[in-house]
Structures are given as C-alpha cells and as structure tokens.
Amino acid sequence: MNIFRLIGDLSHLAAIIILLLKIWKSRSCAGISGKSQILFAIVFTTRYLDLLTSFISLYNTCMKVIYIGCAYATVYLIYMKFRATYDGNHDSFRVEFLVVPVGGLAVLINHDFSFLEILWTFSIYLESVAILPQLFMISKTGEAETITTHYLFCLGLYRALYLFNWIWRFYFEGFFDMIAIVAGVVQTVLYCDFFYLYVTKDGKGYRFSI
C-alpha cells in the first residue's frame, strides 16, 4: 500500500458514494447511464469472486464488499426505485460492442487460462471502457449536471492515481502487471478530454461535447 493507491481507492469510493447520494437526494437518475452502472456491477462481481477463495486483508475485503454493494444499490435505484426518471432514450450505447470484444480479449490475453483468472482479466478490460456509455450519453445530450461531473472526475482521478501506484510499485517492489497497466492507461486516457473540460470550466455543470 502506498499513498497513490490509498488516495486512489478513496477517490473511487467517493465517486461511487457521490453518485448514490446524488440519485438518492434528488430522487432522480436523470443524466446517469444505467448501462455504465450495470457494467461496473459486472466489473466488481467478476473481479471480486476471490472474496470466496482467498483472504488478503480486512481493508481489501471491506472495500470489495462496499464496492459491490454500492454498485448493485446504484443499479437498483436506476432500474427499479427511480426508473421513471431514467433517461433510457439517451442511454443508447450498444454495450454488446464492448462486452463481446472484451470477453474475447480476456480469453486470448490473460496471465493464466483458468476460470477465475479469465473473469478477473475480463473485469480489468471491461472496467477500462465501462464509462463509455456514460460519456456517450453526455455527448448526446450535450450537458452534464455539476454533481455528475464531480462523479466522473473522482472516477477518472482514481485510475490516474493507480498509474502512479504502479510506477511506485515498479520502482520500489519490482512489481508490474502488464494487463492492469495497459488497461489502466486506456481507462485514464478516456477521461483526459473530460479532465480538460472539468478543470477549464471549474467543475461547473456545462454544455459538453466529446
């Protein structure tokens, strides 16, 4: 554990909680892509199956359980409790174009051809592109609420901090995981355009194009 990793995890947690609170307080999921949230629920589920097979640390277990719980709670709020406010017409990204190639890639390029390892690899690849339906939705409607931009900023910051974490681990532990690093770079790059707008517009809600 290093400072980049810790702040990254907390940033990730902040993003998840910001989104949950936004939906809960406003009683609305307008402007939020349910598809991205389903993809994140799939990401956490397929990655954290090792909860059942191995114990790493109390921190690790707690965070995994919280992430999975929050992901399903978010999906529940969007598709069940507040589904009347869900803007399905604008959430039109074809997720099969992500899930199918990512699944194929996970089978082809992985550390070990075993069930759990392929699911873990699938989750890493899927996470790197899971935000695309959300970004697509914002580009389609041309606007995002301020709170939604804070959510996206925290989510992007999390993966950017993980890049520094991997640089740290490479230098001080001689450790690197090429699958995680390449996917992490791809994921971070997807946020770059958004980061630029977020900083230059001072995080205000804005009309937004990609």
């Binding site: 550390h111 690197f176 995981d177």
Partner: peptide, 10 residues
C-alpha cells in the same frame, strides 16, 4: 511477469 500479482489491488 508476476502472475496474479495485483489481486491485492482493487
């Protein structure tokens, strides 16, 4: 290349 090495990460 470390196998399954980043499983301690989230």
């Amino acid at each position: 290349l470390a196998f399954s090495g980043s499983k301690d990460e989230l």
